[in-house]
Design a protein around this nucleic acid. Structure first.
Length: 335
RNA sequence: GGCCCAUUCGUCUAGUGGCCUAGGACACCGCCCUCUCACGGCGGCGGCACGGGUUCGAAUCCCGUAUGGGCCUCCA
């Protein structure tokens, strides 16, 4: 039984590097503790913990115990130090501040013991603490856990990723329209990198295409916030923001820059074909309308322009399916 | 400066002494599909940081150099 923990500081939305830790712990651990490392009041951010919980929920990372706040356990840390007759300073670091508040080192080691953590999986920025923490475990009379460090997620330029950088936080990836499945798949793919890795948004984007592709029309439409008959418009989109744009470009009445009288024969024939059909077409019906127009050498491009006001966009059958009969006919007659 | 960690195509990786003329994925380029843009399919380009060892044989083991990173804070 691998007992692991994910222990962020409550400083707001998760950095992708933290999210990597969270996903890695969840993947390798059988039992996961969510611990909030808030021993430094100066660093805590209002709503920080809530933002982290929301990010984890979105990513689908579930925990078995917690959230446990270290600020609630200060007395326990001091008691453990006292029981082992430790001084305020241990091997060069402070175990508690002059005001009596325990620091990260003490709190972390006592918690890892108290919660039976067998494996610590954390970012390589903690590597230098490994020896110190092992020594502290022993000084407190505890067995040190196994420790594994993973590389950090850095910018494409190899430099540290600031929280403001594109895609640097879980929130920014969510806002960019990447589905949670894609972000999680990306982090899973990175696994436990031995060295720092460059954030690869192209890869996230590609995984996003796969994730959206795997959704049913109902799911896809729901996430994009469009009617289900508009779902086919969204196929091929790289992310949900793009998907919404694709749908809007068809559903919103076209501005008339491209709406000039042309190929009126095709449009007339389209109106004829469309009029007797149901308000909403299914895929086969939409395709068969197009087949008929094609058979007589109709100008499909002109039809697209009449219906959407654009010369490019989703497949025409999807456009026909997304537009109710009256709206489609209205647009075809505008020209 | 000291201690520690890492180093395979542009990026993420497979690879743990012979199966490696180094495999895959993303990106890029080309072709196909097609009413367009995407998506998708097929193909192409492209790499073991460098130098010494060890060995019949090294991407794989050892040493050195270089490069990148972490820590050296009453931040975690």
């Amino acid at each position: 039984m691998l007992r692991v923990r994910f222990a962020p500081s409550p400083t707001g939305t998760l950095h992708v590097g933290n999210a990597l830790s969270a996903v890695a712990n969840r993947t390798f651990g059988d039992w996961l503790l969510l611990r909030i490392d808030d021993t430094d009041p100066a660093r805590n951010v209002d709503g920080g913990e809530a933002a982290i919980l929301a990010d984890l929920a979105w990513l689908g990372v579930e925990w078995d115990d917690g959230p446990v706040r270290q600020s609630d356990r200060a007395a326990r840390y001091l008691e453990a130090a006292e029981a082992a007759r430790l001084d305020q300073r241990f091997d060069g670091v402070m175990l508690w501040r002059d005001d009596g508040s325990p620091t990260f080192h003490l709190a972390s080691v006592v918690d890892d013991h108290d919660f039976g953590i067998t494996h610590v999986i954390r970012g390589s920025d903690h590597r230098a603490n490994e020896e110190l923490h092992a020594a502290l475990h022993r000084a407190l009379g505890f067995d040190p856990p196994e420790v594994v460090h993973h590389g950090l997620v850095v910018g494409a330029d190899g430099k540290k990723l600031s929280k403001r950088a594109e895609g640097a936080t879980v929130a920014s990836l969510r806002d960019a329209g990447y589905p949670a499945e894609a972000v999680r798949a990306y982090l899973l793919e990175l696994g436990l990198p031995r060295h720092d890795v460059h954030l690869d948004l192209e890869r996230v984007r590609s995984l996003s295409v796969d994730a959206l592709d795997a959704l049913t029309d109902d799911e896809l439409a729901e996430r994009a916030g469009v009617p289900v008959e508009a779902a086919p418009l969204l196929r091929g989109a790289h992310d949900l923001v793009e998907a919404r744009g694709l749908a809007a470009a068809v559903l919103d009445p076209p501005s008339n820059s491209l709406l000039q009288a042309r190929s009126s024969e095709t449009l007339e024939r389209f109106v004829e074909l469309r009029t007797p059909l149901p308000d909403v077409l299914d895929k086969d019906a939409a395709k068969s309308v197009l087949r008929e127009l094609k058979a007589v050498g109709g100008d499909l491009r002109g039809l697209r322009e009449a219906l959407t006001g654009r010369d490019r966009g989703p497949e025409l059958w999807a456009v026909l399916r997304a537009l109710p009969r009256d709206e489609a006919i209205r647009r075809a007659r505008l020209t």
